[in-house]
Simulated scan of single mutants.
Amino acid sequence: MTPRPPSRRPSENRGQSAPSRPRRPAGDIPEDDLIYGRHTVLAALENRRSLNRIWAISQLRSDTRFQPLLQEAKARGAIIDGASHQRLDQITRGANHQGIAAQVTPYRYWDLETLIARAQSATSQPVLVAVDGVTDPHNLGAIVRTAEAMGTQGLILPQRRAVGVNATVMKVAAGALETFPVARVVNLNRALTELKSAGFWVYGTAAGEYPPLHTVNLTGAAVLVAGSEGEGLSRGIAQNCDLLVSIPLRGATPSLNVSVATGMALYELFRQRGAD
């Protein structure tokens, strides 16, 4: 138990007002705690995302789309602050905030077993994405946005040597994370083994002399594994995949950005599924 501080004697600070708590500078909020932009914050509000504080210009606080949602967020404990464009520029460090920003609470990850069960109940041919060592939040956000848009049932992240879901990821995902489940696992190799046991076929994307993506039958329950920005798939993860596939490149560019490659691979998976 924290000891109670000693009582102040009546003679101390007599006639003086209590010192006020210093105000935190407007731009002193960690960047990973912030989301901003009308679409991103609106999606967070509509999906009852847990927010600590929201800053908005007066026009948005009275906007018919935002006003009831801001009141609901306030009722759940969020602090709603009026702010000018200049203050929002400070808070977001000059980003394109569109008149609104919010400080988020940490993302709540799904457990793997629940994610698998949810995916299998959604469709007869579920697709999950796993990422191996992606460290750039912009890449992860782009992967999430594409995966959700294509109809993927969820994403799996390792806890170590990889970026987690932070405000930058949320911003790049443009609201997709409000409805798209993400699981974070201690050991990605063990997670892939568990997915195989649940009936998923695991495909790893890799550069080199591997079967071209479009020549492989990708139907059925599938996990698409994407490697890190610099090294690609780690050796252990590559060995644990059922099959490594490649994306044929015809130009002089030797490789693709991981989020672009993942998007192309996901398109092929869902193209083969047709209307399912």
Rank of each mutant, 00 (worst) to 15 (best):
P3V: 01
P3K: 07
R4M: 14
P5F: 09
P6D: 12
P6R: 14
S7D: 10
R14D: 04
P19G: 14
P22R: 10
R24Y: 01
P25Y: 07
A26Y: 05
D28C: 09
P30N: 05
E31R: 14
D32R: 11
Y36T: 02
N47A: 15
R48G: 07
S50P: 06
S58A: 13
Q59W: 13
R61L: 10
T64N: 12
L70K: 10
A73Y: 15
R76L: 11
A78D: 07
I79E: 14
G82N: 15
S84K: 10
L88I: 15
D89E: 08
D89C: 05
D89S: 12
A95R: 13
H97G: 05
H97D: 08
Q103C: 10
V104L: 13
T105E: 12
Y107M: 03
Y109Q: 02
W110G: 02
L112V: 01
L112D: 02
T114C: 02
T114P: 01
S121Y: 01
Q125S: 08
P126Q: 07
L128G: 06
L128I: 10
L128H: 09
A130E: 06
A130R: 07
V131S: 09
D132P: 14
V134P: 13
D136V: 06
D136S: 06
D136R: 14
D136C: 08
H138W: 04
N139Q: 09
G141V: 12
A142K: 09
I143K: 12
I143Y: 05
V144R: 06
V144N: 00
R145I: 05
T152Q: 08
Q153M: 11
L155Q: 12
I156Y: 04
I156W: 09
I156F: 05
Q159H: 13
R160C: 06
R161A: 07
V163F: 11
V163Q: 09
G164V: 06
G164P: 06
N166D: 15
T168W: 15
M170Y: 08
M170W: 10
A173Y: 08
G175V: 11
T179H: 15
F180D: 02
P181Q: 01
A183L: 00
R184H: 02
V185E: 07
V186Q: 13
N187Y: 07
L188N: 01
N189R: 14
N189W: 00
R190L: 12
R190Y: 05
T193Q: 14
T205D: 01
A207E: 15
G208Q: 01
G208A: 01
Y210M: 01
P211W: 02
H214N: 13
T215P: 00
T215C: 04
V216M: 03
A221E: 11
V223A: 02
V223H: 04
V223K: 05
V223S: 03
V225Y: 07
G227E: 04
G227A: 04
G227P: 13
E231P: 00
L233Q: 08
L233F: 10
S234E: 09
A238V: 06
Q239N: 15
N240V: 04
C241G: 01
C241I: 03
P248R: 15
R250W: 11
G251Y: 14
T253N: 10
S255N: 10
N257D: 08
V258F: 02
M264C: 04
Y267L: 03
R271F: 04
R271A: 14
Q272C: 05
A275E: 10
D276G: 09
